[in-house]
Design a protein around this nucleic acid. Structure first.
Lengths: 227, 227
DNA sequence: GCATTTGTAATAGTAAAACTATTACTTTTG
DNA sequence: CAAAAGTAATAGTTTTACTATTACAAATGC
């Protein structure tokens, strides 16, 4: 995808930040370097102190933008899901055949990211690795119900809804479109993680084509099963 | 399942503990109460200090059994996967038809646990809830490669292998048996978690029958697709 | 039978992480 | 150009995760 859309800005739930990091240079530096640091250290080992050191500011400054590192992770994952929804919309626009739409959506979801020039301070390639390894930690908490009420998972739910619409077009009687859509998103990441770190429990290697063909078979065989 | 098997002891990777918690009363109390506490507080809020308070021992005593809370979580999840493998083996024993074996395995995997009397100091019902909400945190770390070498994920891999064998019996040419098996295990938990906490992204409610029928359709339609 | 070793647990720490209060400086705006 | 608002640095506190040391009890050896 080229930078046709210029300065596109993604909508992120307001309560996720104290001050919008997209509104200042320092905020953008925080985003850029938090992605680099979380990807390299892992979320557990990542601290605001280390981030402050990286950008040459004290940790207290980072607290001006994000209440804690959990909300920063929620911000980054929300950004990713919003960006992926935009990719899916783009990949399915002007496509007549619903089956073709689904195939294109699967490709958009599963393809390993290369730098997207539309958002220059966000490295989407690194961000995708973070989402694969860390995003589930953002919702597997005791606070999920409250955070859901606060709209923290809106981006994810929007993306699921997009895929559900395509599935419903293909077969309005298929009973589990939401389960299939959320499974698609989660399984894609999980299998990529296993492929990289626990290869003995997956058949999928580093190549995107394998996951894509697995999901095309899965979705189509399930949606049309007993139709 | 009744207590036909008496004092069955599950094999847990040795390096996961400093002293075998199954070898003393105190060790068993640590297991019992860590399950209760992790389930009620969530893994992030769980500390050895709180556990010590619960069992009336100082936290240092718990370090005699487990190096840190991460290894305790790995111990508990290993125990769970070992126990589930034993349930799967039990459910598929003496079943002739491979398709029937797979169906029984799916039921054993997906059914919500009620207390199993074979292991009196472990509350399997609570432990299953822990595995649903917390188990992925045990492998989504930067240390996964080393921990895999140390055998920490042996129980999980054994269980995947059991399911793979059944799938291969059904269709030796199916190209993704491992992916299907690990997806089955992970998706089961994920969909149950979504059903409880983010119901808008799943069609599955609190009833086990729905997940079970989803998986039976999924596995059978995929395994036989284009056969 | 008593000394030695081994097992077990309590006290009292340390280091780092997570987060906050206060102050100072800088920019905006009425 | 003064008041208000925005921004960042210093210097904290509290909590968590983990450790070193000591004390006591049980088992073992000669």
């Amino acid at each position: 995808m080229h930078s046709l859309l210029g300065n596109l800005k993604l909508q992120i739930p307001e309560k996720l930040f104290v001050k919008d990091p997209d509104s200042s240079d320092l905020g953008k530096r925080i985003l850029t370097h938090s992605i680099i640091l979380i990807e390299s250290l892992g979320f557990e080992n990542f601290t605001f102190k280390k981030l402050g050191l990286e950008i040459g500011s004290p940790e207290s400054t980072i607290y001006r933008y994000f209440e804690n590192k959990h909300k920063l992770l929620l911000y980054l994952t929300s950004w990713y899901w919003g960006w992926l929804e935009y990719k899916v919309v783009f990949a399915t626009a002007n496509v007549e055949l619903a089956q073709r739409q689904l195939e294109n959506a699967i490709c958009a979801i599963c393809e390993t990211v290369k730098q997207d020039q539309n958002f220059s301070h966000i490295n989407e390639e690194l961000l995708q690795r973070i989402v694969i390894s860390e995003s589930s930690k953002a919702f597997l908490t005791k606070e999920i119900e409250q955070e859901n009420k606060d709209g923290f998972f809106k981006s994810y739910k929007n993306l699921v809804e997009r895929i559900v619409i395509i599935i419903r077009t293909l077969n309005p009687n298929y009973p589990h479109p939401k389960t299939l859509a959320s499974t698609l998103l989660e399984t894609n990441h999980m299998q990529k993680f296993f492929g990289s770190h626990l290869p003995s429990i997956t058949d999928i290697g580093k190549d995107d084509e394998q996951v894509i063909s697995y999901f095309k078979t899965m979705t189509l065989s399930m949606i049309n099963y007993g139709k």
